[in-house]
């Protein structure tokens, strides 16, 4: 796990970009949700013919809901992180400027009156950095979670394929269609999640 941004000057932009990219994931998750509805309707119509497909549609609904929730969480966290890293940047800047004033006023009669202020700025900067790291960790955890959901989705698509293959001929094509769409959506989400991770690690 990444402990902190390497280049905080660009980090707040990256974090904001992550939030923007996630809107695509949200669309995909909504697609999964839609497909799950179709699948449910199909399963209800087909009755016993595709009974084994029922748990799969349930899983898809759950997956879609979880993903939507996670994306919203990540989005919120990414925006907080962006704001945080900007605050971190400001506090680092203030810290630097106070330090510089301290260095330049070494011989000043009242130079020592700056000490507590400079110290305060340094503490504030430290706190900001710690907070940034906390939010960062949280965001990576959420990305981990979304990725592991998508891995689970891959396992389920593999099982679903087998189920679809054994279903009655008249339903086979529809079921396979659903499986393909689920797979595509899961892969796209996985791809975006890892892209987000990379841009945060940059």
């Amino acid at each position: 796990m990444q402990s902190g941004p390497r280049n905080s000057a660009h980090f707040f932009i990256n974090a904001a970009t992550v939030a923007a990219e996630l809107s695509v994931v949200l669309t995909e998750a909504k697609n999964i949700s839609l497909e799950a509805m179709n699948a449910k309707a199909l399963v209800a119509r087909a009755g016993d013919n595709v009974r084994t497909f029922k748990p799969i549609t349930d899983f898809m609904v759950e997956l879609a809901n979880d993903t939507i929730w996670l994306v919203k969480e990540i989005n919120r966290e990414a925006l907080t992180l962006s704001r945080n890293s900007l605050a971190d940047l400001h506090s680092a800047d203030a810290h630097e400027r106070f330090k510089k004033a301290q260095e330049r006023s070494k011989t000043a009669a009242f130079g020592d009156t700056l000490d507590s202020i400079a110290q305060e700025a340094s503490n504030r900067h430290h706190q900001q950095t710690m907070q940034l790291r906390r939010h960062m960790r949280k965001l990576f955890e959420l990305l981990d979670e979304i990725e592991s959901r998508m891995l689970a989705a891959n396992v389920v698509t593999a099982t679903s394929r087998l189920e679809a293959a054994t279903a009655a001929d008249s339903y086979q094509a529809s079921l396979e269609g659903i499986v393909v769409k689920l797979e595509k959506a899961a892969n796209r989400i996985k791809h975006i999640a890892s892209k987000c991770r990379h841009s945060l690690e940059r």
Partner: peptide, 10 residues
């Protein structure tokens, strides 16, 4: 700012 602050505390 830094230069000002440093100058002021003289």
């Amino acid at each position: 700012f830094s230069a000002m602050l440093a100058a002021v505390v003289h």
